[in-house]
Design a protein around this nucleic acid. Sequence first.
RNA 1: CGGGGUGUAGCGCAGCCCGGUAGCGCGCCUGGUUUGGGACCAGGAUGUCGGAGGUUCGAAUCCUCUCACCCCGACCA
Length: 570
Amino acid sequence: MRTTQFFLATLKEAPSDAEIVSHKLMLRAGLIKRLAGGIYSWMPLGLRILRKVENIIREEMDRAGAIELLMPAVIPAELWQETGRWEMYGPELLRFKDRHQRDFVIGPTHEEVITDVVRREIRSYRQLPLHLYQIQTKFRDEIRPRFGVMRGREFLMKDGYSFHASYADLQREYRNMHDTYTRIFTRLGLSFRAVAADTGSIGGTGSHEFHVLADSGEDAIAFCADSDYAANVELAEGVAPANPRNVHTEHMKKVATPGKTRCEDVAALLELPLAKTVKAIAVMHEEQFLLLLIRGDHTLNEIKASKLPFLNPFRFASDEEVERFLGCRPGYIGPVGIDQGIPIVADRTVAQMSDFVCGANEAGYHLTGVNWSRDLREPDHVFDIRNVVEGDSSPDGKGSLSICRGIEVGHIFQLRTKYSEAMKASFLDEAGQPHAMEMGCYGIGVTRIVGAAIEQNHDERGIIFPRAIAPFEVAIAPIGYGKSQSVRDAANTLYAELRSAGIDVLMDDRDERPGVMFADLELVGIPHRVTIGERSLKEGMVEYQGRREATAAKVPLTEICAYVRERLRA
RNA sequence: CGGGGUGUAGCGCAGCCCGGUAGCGCGCCUGGUUUGGGACCAGGAUGUCGGAGGUUCGAAUCCUCUCACCCCGACCA
């Protein structure tokens, strides 16, 4: 491709609403243009990247035995009513009516449609297993679309669904997809990690997320350096401290802590470690008021708490409710001396604490030297309700946890028979008996991968694409293209050679000043560049510059084609 | 949905407090000089000042409504 025949739309300054580096760079490089919140056009250069990602996914899915199809983006409401998701889904589901006042949705996911397809086609165990997938535009009306393409409302997704005659076969395919995803993200050239994930209400034995590792990621991942344990922090288990509760050494004492409503402030005032404090979080489950206890330096994991039957669902108590049930305004509440009718739910860590600090249920006062049994009743419930932190023991008992951040780009899970039962997708076994099909579901955020790849691969000059998804693999930058016959000849010859070798090459024939060409070619992330100028050409040399390399290499013109091909192989 | 903020040229912004008929940088167009890291000189084009209404002799500026976008609201007892 020649630049003059293509469409480059680079910007020196990024629009001010871009927050993270990948969003800024995608805008500056002219990969995408925003049309509305979370809705973007993919410009020609960006589309080339998207297509490359898509093709790698397609190749690997096909290789793994899945079969591509394409389902409609617009789905009649009846299918969603059949599974109950029409009611379950909130405003995130974009609903509309057609001219006959029939309800439709724009598909945020396609379990219903695929299950409908399969139940009409599949009768016998002999037709199973079957894995169908599509690469298609989805729409989710996110509360807060942001970060450009990372959390968009309209986005491209690969979603695959597998159907099986037995759970064992579903597990087999699940492992197959785990391997396939690993191959896909490896081929994409990304640094990633598969982590155990929350299965949500769906259940089943397994769910894994694939995360591209990046500091700007929205998810926190807990992993163990000494084993292969890795889990989303939402899920990672906070194990009970190995040491038993210490013997108490202090008497309970009421201390004045005026204006100190946060554990941090109280600890600072009393000159105690934050880990000696306990924060009480007042919540409501229906009409029941409860107190959750978390160590001062820990944070509540709302997902874990929500899963407890006596808390599902819960909300934070209002200030008025706190006053009503504890007779004290928020900031100084604690578990000591409270009514028997208010259940105390302690985190495992808190249950092991001794001589701790908590609110005195009296404005302006806290209690120190508090101990279970002696000063207050033992907690009514002890559960893991906090987020794990760096240094916690790994749940598999093999060392300690580290925390890093990631961008979720893939998710696989075992749906089992949730949809097949709701939608009566059944097959006949060898004995002629009907069974609901076992289902698996496997998604990859195609659009998001582009953002994630940039988030992971950039420098102050712009994007550095991994070769597999670079819009062009090599750029030719001829200096004085319009003026110098020798430069033009050398550039045209190299361009033709690289093209005939099947390499994706961009020739910058704009006759721009070198600085402009270099800046653009670097910004858009082309991994290899050959600079051809009259000066070095006189000595029969051209220059090769790797996007990640600090210095350029002089290479004889006669060898440059072979040289580039060699670098591409590396 | 609450709290805050911003909408002025393709992009980044000033002007608004204190009303007087719109400006800067980049980009764009023309001509010339340049040509190995975002050139220089000269000339030029581009705005319903987000929209509607109001106040006023006069509104980008003041008032009301509205729309769009951004940020915060997820550790707080």
